[in-house]
Design a protein around this nucleic acid. Structure first.
Lengths: 196, 196
DNA sequence: CTTATAGTGGACCGATCGGTCCATCACCGG
DNA sequence: CCGGTGATGGACCGATCGGTCCACTATAAG
């Protein structure tokens, strides 16, 4: 009987995610969210609750999408080591494109909000753990495929690769030269995942 | 002839730094700064200008202090490799202490503000470059002291160590288990600075 | 067509934001 | 002892914050 929604929930979440991604949590006002989504306050609040709830939902979907992407990427790749390399280098590409220098929504907001928002910190921990698990699987497979030395501990290497990638994201965000970032990525990969 | 200042500038800057460190830039209000410093608005503005100027000054002093600390640490240490290890592990210590989980003011605010405040991004780049130079010197010395394999490229290793440390700071901020962080630090150090 | 229901969007709210202004104060040279 | 100068801190400002409320609308069931 009621009036149906006039907006596409996916599109709204996508535009809201872009707003948070570009400007951070505190840097994105309600007004920004309304403009980005094209909705009125009543609609946005009725559908998603307050700003924090909306943000948490967007963040969780971002993490899930990343997880899915990495998982299918691993399924389709010929060599697991290529996926690991892509994981480290991927976020740094496209230096002049539309998505340039936005870094990673997860890392950006984890740094911004972890001190004051335990739920965001917990979500970040959960998500990083999932990523590490996938990376460890990838390292094991890369060892089977002969691309990584067998003496490497897959779990330790996965954790270290994650840390290295996060560091590159920080340096990317402050505008570090992309060529230097690529070199760092290669140094990290060679050091942490030596060939047999 | 005029009335002299009634506050100690160093103490004020120190307490203001603590406030920004705990709560980030946007998360620290003028009111917070007044409470932390014990000053009135007129005094704070008269002495340091607006919020952004004050923050930039605090950030620059933080970076300089860190640079000085690392430099003297290197001068006094018996082995450069110990200083590098300390650089990576140091910020993670003291998990239950008063300074727990504040991470690094430079990294925190670089992530928070780089997108919208070019001056902060530039300061972060400048500071990271200085740190990398010191680290590269340390790697060269560690090679001379026989603690790091000569085949390692000091500049590349320094960049990669910096990236790894930054990643650990991110994971530390979201509340990652300190034991896991220590293991990651060791993995990074062993991988990037192999013994001869 | 009527009616119940949820969607819509803007008016409106108090709180707080960063920042300005100024009456008052304390000091020091004369 | 006085006069002038900068320090002081709180009153005050407009803007904007996140959030609530409500008159109105569009819809589908009866």
């Amino acid at each position: 009987m009621p009036r149906p929604r006039q907006f596409d929930e996916e599109r709204v979440l996508s535009s809201v995610q872009a707003a948070f991604w570009d400007n951070g949590y505190a840097g994105t006002s309600l007004e920004d969210l309304l403009v980005a989504s094209g909705l009125g306050k009543g609609s946005l609040y009725g559908a998603f609750g307050d700003k924090q709830s909306l943000f948490l939902r967007v963040l969780r979907e971002y993490d899930e999408a990343n997880d899915r992407m990495l998982r299918t990427w691993l399924e389709q790749a010929d060599r697991a080591v290529d996926v690991i390399r892509g994981f480290v280098i991927g976020p740094l590409r496209d230096p002049g494109g539309a998505e340039a220098r936005r870094g990673c929504l997860r890392a950006n907001t984890a740094m911004e909000l972890s001190a004051g928002a335990p739920e965001v910190a917990a979500e970040a921990r959960r998500s990083y753990a999932a990523t590490t698990t996938l990376l460890a699987e990838a390292v094991r497979r890369a060892q089977r495929e002969g691309d990584v030395a067998p003496r490497v501990d897959p779990d330790e290497a996965a954790h270290a690769v994650l840390a290295g990638q996060l560091g590159l994201l920080v340096l990317d965000r402050v505008g570090q030269d992309p060529a230097a970032l690529s070199t760092m990525a290669e140094t990290l990969l060679h050091g942490l995942l030596p060939r047999p």
